[in-house]
Design a protein around this nucleic acid. Structure first.
Length: 280
DNA sequence: GCCCAGGTATAAA
DNA sequence: TTTATACATGGG
């Protein structure tokens, strides 16, 4: 049951309540976005060119530096507040007892609706990499090539990066991924890869569209579809999911996870990463 | 020093 | 078609 959310505009932001099934740490620091940092009891970050601080007390969500209009147009969707995650967890919990445990371990995870280009670019950076270093590279990418707003920097556009050569990215220390980032920027900026089409194309075709880019394989494509286009049927399989499928879900395959496979995947990813002893 | 990290391109079998 | 290896970088 989805309760009606009230949005109250204050002098420095908005207050929304009631907000349930949301935990800021679980959602903003679970390896789906790399741009949020703990700040003043909440999280500070930039998306869609806006810098905000998000705080949660009980079921009361505060977004500092947001207008009511920005909440309705951006943050409500970004935080995916219109989906009933209680119901989704109930549904996917029935698939497997370990998945039920994973849901119960971090019930405040929601799948963000990030900007497609940022999701694509950050998950290109993620390949054969770890989350701490991914955050560092993404931070340096924004500081070097994004626009300064408030106390931070926007994510650089594909058009901006398309004008650069791989060596120009040396300061971000992304190593062999530099050439992949530039290839993605050039194909997106030129329209050869049509990101907007990935909202509506059949899943396999959307995947193929993204995989025109050098350095984008099935995993990066799936993460982009899931986190950038909210294609929740996409099921990214990384090293943690491979382990989980082998040891925790031996009789299940990737396509036994249903219409919310991507959401299930994120509960499993987080549960696995926070409990590595499961794989000893 | 070694191993690993939200993988993929490339070459070889 | 499947399998092996290089790839840049930095934390543990």
């Amino acid at each position: 049951m989805v309760m009606l959310m009230k949005c109250i505009e204050t002098e420095n932001g908005v207050i929304i309540s009631p907000v349930t099934d949301l935990d800021l740490a679980q959602t903003l620091d679970c390896g789906q976005s790399f741009r949020w940092e703990e700040y003043d009891g909440g999280y500070r970050g930039i998306a869609f060119g806006r810098e905000v601080v998000i705080k949660l007390n009980g079921d009361e969500l505060t977004i500092e530096n947001s207008s009511a209009e920005d909440f309705l147009n951006i943050w409500k969707s970004y935080l995916d507040l219109e989906l009933d995650y209680g119901k989704i967890r109930e549904s996917i919990s029935e698939l497997h007892p370990v998945l039920k445990e994973a849901c119960a371990y971090a019930p405040g995870i929601r799948i963000l609706r990030q900007e497609p280009w940022e999701a694509l670019c950050t998950f290109i950076i993620s390949q054969n990499n770890n989350i701490k270093r991914i955050k560092g590279i993404v931070g340096r990418l924004c500081e070097s090539f994004g626009d300064n707003i408030g106390s931070g920097y926007t994510f650089p556009s594909a058009e901006r990066l398309a004008a650069l050569a791989p060596d120009d990215l040396a300061p971000i220390r992304a190593g062999f991924r530099n050439k992949y980032i530039i290839d993605a920027a050039q194909r997106v900026a030129s329209g050869e890869v049509d990101l907007d089409s990935c909202y509506t194309l059949p899943y396999d075709e959307a995947r193929a569209e993204l995989m025109k880019i050098k350095g984008v394989g099935v995993k990066v494509a799936d993460c982009t579809l899931l986190f950038g286009f909210h294609r929740v049927e996409a099921f990214p399989v990384d090293v943690w999911m491979k382990r989980a499928l082998e040891k925790l879900f031996p009789q299940m395959s990737a396509d036994d996870f249903g219409e919310y496979a991507g959401i299930a995947q994120q509960y499993i990813f987080h549960y696995s990463r926070m409990n590595p002893e499961l794989f000893d």
